[in-house]
Simulated assay, not measured.
Amino acid sequence: MFPIETISAKMLDYYADRSDALIIDVRDAALYQKSHIRGALNYPYSQIEQCRELPREKLLIFYCQRGGSSMAAARLFVKKGYKTRSVIGGFEAYRGRNLVISG
Results as ranks from 00 to 15, higher is better:
7 I>L: 05
7 I>W: 06
8 S>E: 12
8 S>P: 00
10 K>L: 09
10 K>W: 06
10 K>M: 11
10 K>G: 02
11 M>T: 07
11 M>N: 10
12 L>V: 10
12 L>I: 14
12 L>D: 09
13 D>W: 03
13 D>M: 04
13 D>Y: 04
13 D>S: 04
14 Y>N: 11
14 Y>G: 00
14 Y>S: 11
15 Y>C: 02
15 Y>F: 14
16 A>K: 05
16 A>L: 02
17 D>T: 10
18 R>Q: 14
18 R>A: 13
18 R>F: 12
18 R>L: 15
18 R>W: 06
19 S>Y: 07
19 S>H: 11
19 S>R: 13
19 S>I: 08
20 D>Y: 13
20 D>N: 12
20 D>W: 10
21 A>K: 12
21 A>W: 02
21 A>R: 05
22 L>Y: 01
22 L>K: 11
22 L>F: 01
22 L>S: 10
22 L>W: 14
23 I>H: 14
23 I>E: 05
24 I>L: 15
24 I>K: 12
25 D>W: 12
26 V>H: 13
27 R>D: 06
27 R>V: 01
28 D>N: 14
28 D>A: 03
29 A>T: 13
29 A>V: 15
30 A>V: 11
31 L>C: 00
31 L>V: 00
31 L>M: 12
32 Y>R: 09
33 Q>E: 13
33 Q>G: 13
33 Q>S: 15
34 K>R: 15
35 S>G: 14
36 H>L: 03
36 H>Y: 08
36 H>I: 07
37 I>K: 01
38 R>G: 01
38 R>K: 14
38 R>P: 01
38 R>H: 05
39 G>F: 06
39 G>E: 05
40 A>K: 05
40 A>L: 05
40 A>R: 03
41 L>A: 08
41 L>Q: 03
41 L>M: 11
41 L>S: 07
41 L>E: 09
42 N>Q: 04
43 Y>L: 15
43 Y>M: 02
43 Y>T: 09
43 Y>Q: 04
43 Y>W: 05
44 P>D: 08
44 P>N: 03
45 Y>V: 06
45 Y>H: 09
46 S>Y: 02
46 S>N: 02
46 S>L: 03
47 Q>M: 10
47 Q>G: 01
48 I>A: 02
48 I>R: 06
49 E>C: 10
49 E>K: 15
49 E>I: 06
50 Q>F: 09
51 C>K: 08
51 C>F: 09
52 R>F: 06
52 R>E: 12
52 R>T: 11
52 R>A: 10
53 E>W: 08
53 E>Q: 11
54 L>M: 13
56 R>E: 13
57 E>R: 12
57 E>S: 14
57 E>L: 01
58 K>D: 06
58 K>V: 11
58 K>C: 12
58 K>W: 08
59 L>Y: 00
59 L>D: 00
59 L>W: 01
60 L>I: 07
60 L>Q: 02
61 I>F: 01
61 I>D: 00
62 F>K: 12
62 F>M: 12
62 F>C: 03
62 F>H: 13
63 Y>G: 00
63 Y>I: 05
63 Y>W: 09
63 Y>L: 07
65 Q>K: 10
65 Q>C: 03
66 R>N: 06
66 R>E: 07
67 G>Q: 08
67 G>S: 11
67 G>I: 04
68 G>T: 11
70 S>F: 07
70 S>L: 05
70 S>T: 03
71 M>T: 04
71 M>I: 04
71 M>L: 15
72 A>F: 07
72 A>L: 13
73 A>F: 00
73 A>Y: 04
73 A>T: 00
74 A>W: 00
